[in-house]
């Protein structure tokens, strides 16, 4: 009889999976929420079809300005007039302080939008003291 060996083989090491599953669900909820927030700040539009630049560091945009095909300015699903946008841009620069030189707001402009609208947005950012912007493109061709 080989009773000792059989008993050793039937031994089970109890591993509690509950904490791991909890963490996995927490991660799932986090990614779902952040994906929804990212879509919230980016309006649906046809971006200019350009290859763009090979940026070494994709820093966070901070401010995402959407310029729609009709020329309206949309930030976080809210339509702003130019005066409000200028106030927002000025506050952004004041809040940034010394780091304002590194500000690179992301401007998402519809490819069919008039350049007059883009000029107004960039002029407001320039007057506020923003040194450079990033213009979003859709790589396609």
């Amino acid at each position: 009889m080989n009773v000792g060996v059989r008993k050793a083989r039937e031994r089970q090491l109890p591993v509690d999976m509950t904490p791991m599953i909890d963490i996995v669900f927490q991660l799932l909820i986090f990614f779902l929420t952040t994906a929804q927030l990212a879509q919230f700040s980016r309006a649906e539009m046809d971006l200019p079809t350009e290859a763009g630049e090979q940026v070494e560091d994709a820093a966070e945009a901070g401010l995402i300005v959407n310029v729609m095909a009709d020329g309206s300015i949309v930030i976080a699903s809210e339509t702003l007039d130019l005066a409000d946008f200028e106030v927002m841009a000025t506050e952004l620069v004041i809040e940034a302080g010394d780091a304002a030189v590194a500000l690179r707001p992301l401007v998402r402009a519809d490819r069919n939008a008039p350049t007059a609208a883009l000029n107004r947005v960039l002029l407001a950012l320039q007057r506020a003291g923003v040194p450079a912007v990033r213009i979003a493109t859709a790589p396609g061709s």
Partner: peptide
């Protein structure tokens, strides 16, 4: 599998974006 399905769906739906970085000043 739930995570895999979720990321597959969101990757297809979301459009990739690049950028141009002109100066203003």
């Amino acid at each position: 599998f739930l995570l895999l399905a979720y990321f597959l769906l969101t990757t297809i739906v979301s459009q990739r974006e690049d950028q141009l970085s002109p100066n203003l000043a």
